[in-house]
Structure formats: C-alpha cells, structure tokens
Amino acid sequence: MENRSKTDGFKLGRFWSTLITLCIIYLIIKWVIPFVSRWLTGLPFPLPVPGTLALFYIMLTIIALYVYISFSEERLEEFLTPIRRLLLGMYGSRTRTVVLAIIPLLFGWQIYSATVPKVSSPTSLRIQHPSSNFPKDMEALKNPLINPGDAEVDKFIEEVKGNNVQFIPEAMGEVEKVKGKYENILGFIPTESMQAFLKDMKTGNVSRDKARQALREKYLFEGKILYAMNCRPCHGDSTGGDGPMADGFRLRPINFTENGTIETIVEGYTFWRVSTGGRGLPQEATPWDSAMPVWKADIPEEYRWRIIMAEYELAQKTPRQPEKLAEGEGKK
C-alpha cells in the first residue's frame, strides 16, 4: 500500500496513459513515418500515410487498447474512474461543462472540415526521368568528344603545330582578341593539361594522350561558352538551377549539382533531353509545365555534345554508365 501511494506521485493514471499512447501513435503516423520515408526514399518530399490506412492504424490501436484495458476488471475500473468522476462533477462543475462542450465542438469541426469544399492546388505527381518514349537506341550513345579517335587527335596536333586551331564562331571574337598575346593560339587556356601539352609541343615530342586531353580542354572551352549563352539564364552559372530566369518557372530548371539529376542518367538520355526538351517528354513527366527548350532545331548536334560536356564538368558530376548489353547477352 505504502509502495503504491509513493509511486502515485509519478505514475499517470490509466486513463491518461491510454490517451497519451493514442496521441503518440497518431503523431507517429502523421509526422514520423513521412519523415522517415523521406529519409529512406531520398525523395525531395515526404510520403504521407494515406487517409484510410491512417484510420485503419488508429482503429487497430484503439481496439488493442480496449482489449488491454477491459482484460482485467481492475484496469477497466482504473480507466473509467476519472471519466466517472468528471461526469459526476467531482472536478468542479465548470470543468465538466467545459469538457462536455469542447468534445462535440471538436467533433463538429472535424465534420465541417471534412465536408467543406477545399481550395488547394491540384498537385500532379511527376516523373523526372521517364523512359516510356526514350528511344532505346540512344541508351548506349556516347559523347564523341570525350574520347576523340587517333585520327582526330593527330589532326589536332597538326593544327596546333601550324598554329591554326579552329574554334566555333561563338568563340572567335574572344580568340581573335588574345591571339597575339600567346606564342600558340591555345596559350590563353591556363589549365594544367593544356599548358603541359603546349610545353611538350615546343620540345617536339608530344604524346597522343596529352594531345587528347588538350583537345578535350578546347571542346570544354567552347561548351562552356555555349552553356553560358543558352542554358545559364535558366540553369545558372554554377548549374544550381538558379539562373536569372529561374524564379519565373514554377517547375524549376533542374539543379544539376543535386544528387539524382544528371548523374543518374546515361549521356544518351541527357542528349535526348537536351535535344527534345520539355515538349518531348511523355505524359507522366507533365511536359506542359516544362520550360526546357527543344534545342535540336537551334543547336547542331556536335555543339550539343560540347554543352553536355561542360554541363557535367560545371556540376562536378559524371553520367551513369550504360549497362553493357552486348556482354550480358553473350553470357546468356
């Protein structure tokens, strides 16, 4: 007996502990599960528990609690005592009136908000990387500029020797301006690989590997110009999806630095997206909301590849490698 009254100070009554258990379960369903789901799925939004399922969980909990309480006479008695006391006005008649008034009002509010017509923005789920109309033969497409063939590299070395390297017209204005300032026209590119290559060129013994890297640097220079002219207004200088035009588009230009964007798709897919734009998307990707332009009519193919090279470099990402289909089939 003594023991009991001692713990009474700390122990919540059966009634309150039951109520609190219910509240905790509710909170878990409402907040914790969506939060964990977000963490588990890596999606940018939480997945709420669907209404009927939530109701089902709550009902289950109530039944379980009921079974538990009514299992022994003593427990039930303990549970019911505060309720009975309240109804008898033993906590004061004002408390009783307030509690008895609040419960139906809360219930009414629930009914009202469940039945009143609502204005909330219609959300449509959107798939960012749909595959339904992506041409399968583009899956294995490779950026031809990343690994230029030997013939192309040799041609480039000859051009560098003759100091008549060709640039895309968009770059010419700049190149003309710095032409006289460097021994070789490519001297304005201050990156390590380019400078090492030019040094070797001077001594006369140059490896194809170094030349290939230098050629890549040249393509990257052109690609960044084309990116800055065409894509930057939406996707931003640093590819953060924050260009000066970005705020005007509800479906924002993609932030390429984020995980799950251009690193999860193969280059062929990126090429397809850049070529066919928002309008080329299938239904499940809500093409009507996408501001992404259709570039195939405006930018020639080899320029699009330069841009894609620049895009991945600026975002510090690499594309996903296509699965080796041929190999897989060979094993079969």
Binding site: C234, A246, G248
Partner: peptide
Amino acid sequence: LLAGQVIA
C-alpha cells in the same frame, strides 16, 4: 512571377 521568354 515572370521570366524572360527564353524558350524559343
């Protein structure tokens, strides 16, 4: 909010 017409 509006943006410049840079789509086409």
